[in-house]
């Protein structure tokens, strides 16, 4: 599509900003990226409900261990650092997608993102298993049910996003940087940053508030 500035201007969406050189990707992005924002909003409601459930059940420990006995701030700090850093690395991948359009740096930044995501997941699984070792599984109390309803749901999202990232690495190899691949990377980026925001909520409301 050889649309000039005037046409692409009309199609611009606040969430996209792929730059002027991405005409066809721009056109395709219009509907799908907006749709993805709407999906994120719906997903946000899901997390909001589980946050609310957690807030109402945080004191329902049924005589079992509470937040102070269970949370390990060291591990959680590393997880938080890994996830926040992964947002930065994904941001670098997005910048390279926007300006460079060379595959190699994009792939390298995405690989770094994937590594950080996997580090996060590994540490989180380790946290969960050590909680369960202490007899603090979801079956122990309403509080722990609410915890295991909320935090692993985020973990499941990160795992899904990591799988998606691997698929995108393969698709970049198979298709190159076609408009479809680009808009998919764009949505994956939104998803990744969205999960970071959720994690900031979990870190503050579940962990920091629980340990304070």
């Amino acid at each position: 599509m050889s649309a000039g500035n005037v046409n692409t201007e009309a199609l611009k969406h606040p969430g996209i900003n792929l730059g002027e050189a991405h005409g066809e990707a721009h056109t395709q992005a219009e509907g799908v990226v907006f749709g993805f924002w709407v999906f994120l909003m719906s997903d946000f409601i899901l997390f909001g409900l589980l946050f609310a459930t957690y807030a109402t059940m945080v004191d329902h420990t049924a005589g079992g261990p509470g937040p102070k006995a269970l949370f390990d701030l060291k591990s959680i700090s590393i997880e938080t650092f890994a996830l926040l850093l992964s947002s930065f690395t994904f941001g670098m991948a997005s910048l390279n997608l926007k300006h460079g359009e060379r595959r190699k740096p994009i792939i390298l930044w995405l690989l770094a993102t994937l590594m950080l995501g996997l580090i996060f997941l590994g540490l989180e699984l380790h946290d969960f298993s050590s909680m369960i070792d202490k007899g603090a599984g979801p079956w122990r109390s309403g509080f722990l049910s609410a915890f295991f309803g909320l935090v692993p749901l985020h973990g499941l999202h990160v795992a899904t996003a990591s799988l998606w990232l691997i698929v995108m690495l393969v698709q970049m190899g198979v298709f190159g940087l076609t408009p479809r691949v680009k808009t998919r990377l764009l949505r994956l980026g939104l998803f990744w940053h969205f999960l970071d925001i959720i994690w900031v909520g979990i870190f503050s409301i579940v962990y920091l508030a629980g340990l304070s």
Binding site: T53, H60, A146
Partner: peptide
């Protein structure tokens, strides 16, 4: 489903469940 399959306590009697939720 989590309550029924994996013994969670979101809405159970006792163990800190809250059926009003």
């Amino acid at each position: 489903a989590l309550d029924r399959y994996l013994d969670f306590h979101f809405f159970t009697n006792g163990m800190g469940g809250n059926m009003m939720n």
